[in-house]
């Protein structure tokens, strides 16, 4: 009986690890194939199978060429600028709104929450039809500032993360500060904002990944690809003229996902917990 049990357990463990290895393999293989191809020279790419390893793992020519062709220097500059401004903007907008919604009772409080919730139901792609005209009238086409403003806009998930966090900040803290003569602004900036730091980090990671990867609106509103490419839209350069020069394209793709990869390796756990926190109420 004992041996049977051990055998059964062994088989189960084997199946468990086999399935894990299989799905991990499935998850990485598309990206790995890109990495392999990105290191190949033109002739190597044409003559060998895609999964044959490159002869020279230090052949960075494709990366250099892709970087230049897709104007990625500019793209990284723009994306960084956008990221910084959008994060700062949305942190202020989100925390302030959450503060008011959580700390003050007033008619319309619930309605405002529902308005934000309903907004998240509206299909974003579809809205661009009419949003384009508004952006045009505001002079926000080909304007980094316009794009930043629209990216700062409605973001229900981070608002919910903040509201949840506010619920855990003891209201006695506010009251004692009021006793000491602090006004609401001071309470918010001096007491709440520092306490909110974990929530801010969480929502910044989520928002940051979203902003960095956003391409649909960037393509629509930052049409001047010479001046205003973002990292995501700079990849569009490879759509037409390069056709199937995948050694170059793959290099471009790899470059574009490097920042995400680095961020991921550095703060894996924070990303996971951020996602989980965002999903509870989302």
């Amino acid at each position: 009986m004992r041996t049977m049990d051990y055998a059964k357990r062994g088989i189960l463990a084997f199946l468990k690890y086999a399935s894990l290895v299989f799905f991990a393999f499935v998850a990485v293989i598309p990206v790995v194939s890109c990495v392999i191809t990105a290191f190949k020279t033109e002739t190597e790419y044409q003559q060998t199978n895609v999964m044959t390893l490159p002869q020279n793992w230090l052949n960075f020519d494709n990366f250099i060429q892709a970087f230049q062709r897709a104007n990625m220097g500019r793209a990284f500059f723009n994306s960084t600028l956008i990221l910084i401004c959008v994060l700062i903007g949305s942190v202020f907008i989100g925390t302030q709104l959450a503060y008011v919604l959580n700390r003050f009772k007033f008619p319309g409080n619930n309605m405002i929450r529902n308005l934000f919730l309903f907004a998240s139901l509206l299909p974003g792609v579809a809205m661009q039809v009419s949003l384009y005209e508004i952006m045009y009238n505001l002079g926000f086409i080909n304007s980094l500032i316009g794009y930043m403003i629209i990216m700062c806009g409605t973001d229900v998930i981070s608002i919910y993360i903040y509201i949840q966090f506010f619920e855990n900040i003891d209201i006695a803290l506010d009251e004692s500060a009021i006793m000491d003569g602090a006004n609401y602004f001071t309470i918010f900036y001096k007491i709440h904002l520092p306490l909110l730091k974990p929530a801010i980090v969480t929502s910044c990671i989520l928002k940051g990944v979203g902003t960095y990867n956003e391409y649909y609106m960037a393509n629509l509103y930052l049409q001047d690809k010479k001046l205003y490419p973002t990292v995501a839209t700079s990849l569009y350069t490879f759509v037409g003229p390069l056709g199937s020069q995948y050694n170059l394209i793959c290099a471009g793709v790899i470059i574009s996902l490097l920042p995400a990869l680095i961020l991921f390796i550095l703060c894996q756990d924070q990303i996971y917990s951020g996602l989980t926190a965002g999903a509870v109420k989302g």
Binding site: A27, V28, N213, E214, Y216, A232, T233, L257, A260, L261
Partner: peptide, 16 residues
């Protein structure tokens, strides 16, 4: 490994 695909941008996914 299994989570990372989520962090890749849409255009890159298209090419991949």
């Amino acid at each position: 490994f299994m989570f990372f695909p989520y962090l890749i941008n849409g255009i890159a996914i298209g090419f991949i």
